[in-house]
Structures are given as C-alpha cells and as structure tokens.
Amino acid sequence: MSAALAPDVVLSAVVGGVDTGVVLQASDWEFVYRNRRFLLLGAGVTVALTLTSVVLGLLAGLPAGIVEVYGTGPVAGAVRRTGVLLRGTPILVILAFTFFVNPVNLGAFEAATLGLGLRSAAYQSQIFRGAIQSVGGGQMEAARSVGMSQYEAIRHVVVPQALRRSIPGFQNEFTIVLKDTSVAFFIGLAELITRGFNLFTQPGQSESVLEVILAVSAVYFVLTVLTNQGLELLGRRFAIPGTGGER
C-alpha cells in the first residue's frame, strides 16, 4: 500500500480505530517483537538510504563548495542559485519532483537517494564553503608563493585543511540526512517508519500504534547516537594538533 496515493483513507481508518490505544500493553510489545525482522529490514533500508544520499551529497557538494569559493561567471552563479533553490524548498517537495515529476521513471529508493542526496549536496557545499573560507587567504598565498598553481594549491593545501574543519558540520549533516530518510514515507519506500506505519495500520493492530512508533523511534535514536559517536571518532582520528580539530 502506498501512503502517497490515499492518505486520507488510511488515516481515517487508523484514527477511527484508536480508542484506548494510549495504554502500553505487553501483548502489543509482543507484536512489535514478532515483527522485529520486518522492522530491522526497514532499519537496513534507512541506513542504506542514508549512506547513498550522504555519498551523493559529498560527491556533488564538495565540488560545489569549491566552485562557490573560487568559481566565477555563469557556472558559479548557477551553482549558487541551484543551492538556494534546494535549500529553500521542503524535502517533501523535492521528493515529489524526483519521484512523481521526474521523466525518468526511478524506483522509490533511487528517487529518495536523488532527492536527499541533492538536498544534502546543497547543504554540504555550504559546510565546505565555510571551511574553505576559514582556512584563510594566507594559506593560499603561501602555496602560490612556492610556485603551486591555483588548482594545486586548492588540491594540496586548502582542501585537506578544509575537510578536517568541516567534520563537525558534516557530522551534523549526516544525522540530518539520517532523520530525513523518514520523509521517504511519502513515496512509499519501505524504510523504517513506513514499515512501522504498515504494521500498525494492519487490521486489528490499531491498539499497538504507540508501541510500534516508540520502537521505531528508539531505533532511529540508536542510529543517530551511533552515527554521532562514529563520526566523532573519525574526527579525532584525523585531527592535526593546533588546527582546532582535536577534542
């Protein structure tokens, strides 16, 4: 069942059924437990979608950030304007475009990756832009004065420092993407929250709504914490003394 096609029908069915569902019950937790594989598969889809989206965002966002700092002319202008467009539009609208409007018929996962990835690229470009600008013109001048070309200076001096400085921002962006994969519910992708929704909208299961959603939320929470911890380790691993990266 696609949530996108008939939300009203689904919603009224659910809401009509909720009467005493507020009480947490052991039998409802059992229902969650019985469906653990189903939910965990959804968590797998969530993790996979997060990774593909963040990688797409990195691949597109890093060059975009560099272009925003050093680029000139129509290309840089186009990159900036596209960024504003993607940052100024809800992810829901972006997904509507990549899934429903897109002339190339993409599957839900691909459409979600494209939407979340491009939106993330728009934000990551800003993280990298800020990091590059914080490295400062002195580093560029020093590199140029030992005879490097602008490209070499960016490649060997500015970007390595900027990448380290962007780790806190990147960490933040990673968890935002993780949480926003839930919006793929809109295009019916069978990730974690969609599966939770499908569980409690099964006939006769309306009493377990709260248990299912709390379980789903708990999984998201664990994933966010793990992501934060993991990226923090990464930040420490690549820290250079005196560059503000160390904790």
Binding site: V18, G21, V209, L210, V216, S217, Y220
Partner: peptide
Amino acid sequence: GTPLLAQLFVLYFG
C-alpha cells in the same frame, strides 16, 4: 535524536 515525522506520529497516532 529522532525524526520529526516519528514525533508527529507518536502524538497523532500513538
């Protein structure tokens, strides 16, 4: 640490 959508679901459905 949790998605906004999940929070809305907790309040509305849960």
